[in-house]
């Protein structure tokens, strides 16, 4: 605990007064300490320290360009694909440093799954979309087992009833909302521990959005979920913890209801009441 407190102080100076970095009761699934991200010369994230809990849905909110997506992409090292991006600080998954040289990034991304802003199913059949992950990780020992994984993943994503008769159809032939649930099912199929969602509803209509939110409620607790959203109502609806980012710093992190009803920071209050953003 000493260690955390020390870093807590560190982040205090960096971001100018974060109320808490703790995710609440229980040991955190992921911890980040003093994370900084640079795109070449430009600093995108400035000393962010945050804990992510297994039981909670954690929402990242903030105005466009505040670094919330960048920070999210640090959590499964998707930023590695950008050659000029440089990440410093500590990010741990179950007390393992994910930026350690001996961390296998391929396995990390299986453990920390991701759902993207735009639904991006593979141009393959619905079945193959789901089965691809288990296949490359060797999670199923036979056709029956693979069928089972596909079915349960689609069921958890609430898509089974709609697609069970047309598993051979192309994943790209589904509607936008269905495609996004297919992507969630695809992430679930590799049995991850954490699921990162980068504005998963920004390309969807309200009904599809409601379905995704319902789905997030249902799978909460099985996976640690982190969701980036522009939509503050959505953050209020789906999350238990909310972090407010502004200009690359973490301004405030706490219980969602507190953030929305009684924020401690002026910037948070201004943003939530719609004064900027």
């Amino acid at each position: 605990m000493n260690d955390i407190e020390h870093i807590e102080n560190g982040s205090e100076t960096a971001s100018g007064g974060v109320s808490s970095i703790s995710a609440g009761e229980g040991s955190p699934k992921m911890t980040t300490r003093n994370v900084e991200v640079y795109y070449g010369e430009k600093q995108a994230i400035n000393g962010v320290s945050i804990d992510i809990n297994m039981d909670n849905v954690t929402a990242f909110i903030g105005p466009s360009g505040c670094g919330k997506s960048t920070f999210l992409r640090c959590l499964n090292r998707m930023n590695d694909t950008i050659p000029i991006a440089k990440v410093t600080g500590d990010i741990e998954l179950d007390n393992e440093d994910i930026y350690a040289p001996d961390m296998d990034v391929v396995q990390l991304r299986a453990r920390v799954g991701m759902v993207f802003q735009k639904p991006n199913p593979f141009p393959k059949s619905i079945y193959d979309n789901i089965a691809y992950g288990p296949r490359i990780h060797g999670l199923a020992s036979g056709k029956d087992e693979l069928d089972h994984i596909v079915e349960t993943s689609l069921q958890r994503a609430g898509l089974w009833g709609e697609v069970q008769d047309r598993l051979d159809d192309s994943g790209t032939a589904l509607s936008g909302g269905q495609q996004q649930r297919l992507c969630i099912a695809r992430a679930i199929a590799v049995d991850p521990e954490v699921i990162l969602m980068d504005e998963p509803c920004s390309a969807l209509d309200p009904i599809a959005t409601a379905k995704i939110e319902e789905l997030i409620h249902e799978i909460r607790g099985k996976y640690a979920i982190v969701i980036v959203t522009h939509n503050m109502q959505q953050a209020a609806r789906v999350s238990q913890r909310t972090a407010f980012f502004h200009l690359g710093t973490l301004v405030e992190y706490g219980v969602t209801s507190d953030i929305f009803t009684n924020p401690t920071q002026e910037k948070t209050r201004d943003y939530i009441t719609g004064r900027y953003g």
């Binding site: 499964n76 998707m78 694909t81 391929v106 396995q107 990390l108 991304r109 299986a110 453990r111 799954g113 991701m114 759902v115 993207f116 735009k118 991006n120 199913p121 593979f122 141009p123 691809y132 992950g133 490359i136 990780h137 992507c183 695809r186 992430a187 199929a189 590799v190």
Partner: peptide, 14 residues
């Protein structure tokens, strides 16, 4: 499209 690469990387394809 880069989204296909991201999708594959995101579920742990090498």
């Amino acid at each position: 499209p880069p989204s296909i690469r991201e999708a594959a990387l995101g579920i742990g394809a090498s």
